[in-house]
Amino acid sequence: MVKREKVLEEIIEGYRNTICHRYQYENIKKTYDLPASIDEATVNQLREYFLNYMYPAHDKRVALNEAFNSLDDYTKYPQKLLKILLDAAKLIFRYGRHLPRILIAGLHAMKTFKAATNFENSLVDEAVKNEIEAPYDLVKIDALIKLLSREEIEKFIEISQSLFEILHDKVLIKKIKEVIQHLITAMRKNENSYSQSQIKGLEIGLEMITEGDALFNRLPKEDQLNLVLVISEIERDNLDYIF
Rank of each mutant, 00 (worst) to 15 (best):
T75Y: 10
T75I: 15
T75N: 09
K76F: 09
Y77L: 06
P78I: 00
Q79M: 07
Q79I: 08
Q79V: 12
K80H: 14
K80G: 08
L81W: 03
L82Q: 04
K83T: 13
K83H: 10
I84E: 10
L85I: 06
A88M: 10
A88H: 12
A88C: 11
A89Q: 05
K90N: 14
L91F: 01
I92V: 15
F93P: 05
F93L: 06
F93H: 12
Y95W: 08
Y95H: 13
Y95K: 07
Y95I: 07
H98Y: 11
H98I: 08
L99Q: 10
P100C: 12
P100H: 08
R101M: 10
I102C: 01
I104K: 00
I104A: 03
L107P: 12
L107R: 05
H108V: 11
A109Q: 05
A109M: 05
A109T: 01
M110G: 00
K111S: 10
K111M: 02
K114T: 14
A115Y: 08
N118S: 14
N118I: 12
F119T: 02
E120F: 01
E120H: 01
N121G: 01
N121S: 02
N121H: 04
S122Q: 13
S122G: 14
L123M: 15
V124Y: 00
D125P: 00
D125I: 01
E126N: 14
V128T: 12
V128D: 06
V128N: 09
K129Y: 14
N130E: 15
N130T: 10
N130G: 08
E131F: 03
I132K: 00
I132G: 02
A134C: 13
A134G: 13
Y136F: 15
Y136E: 15
L138I: 13
K140A: 08
I141A: 05
I141T: 11
D142V: 05
D142C: 15
A143L: 12
I145F: 02
I145P: 02
K146G: 07
L147E: 09
L147N: 06
L147W: 04
L148Q: 07
L148C: 05
S149C: 11
R150I: 15
E151C: 09
E152C: 06
E154I: 00
I157L: 07
E158C: 10
I159C: 06
I159E: 11
S160G: 09
S160K: 06
S160M: 11
S162H: 15
S162G: 08
L163A: 13
L163P: 15
F164W: 15
E165A: 02
E165V: 04
L167W: 02
L167E: 03
L167A: 02
L167M: 06
L167I: 03
L167P: 05
H168R: 15
H168W: 09
H168Y: 10
H168L: 06
D169W: 05
K170G: 11
K170H: 12
K170A: 09
K170E: 15
K170D: 11
L172C: 03
L172W: 04
L172D: 02
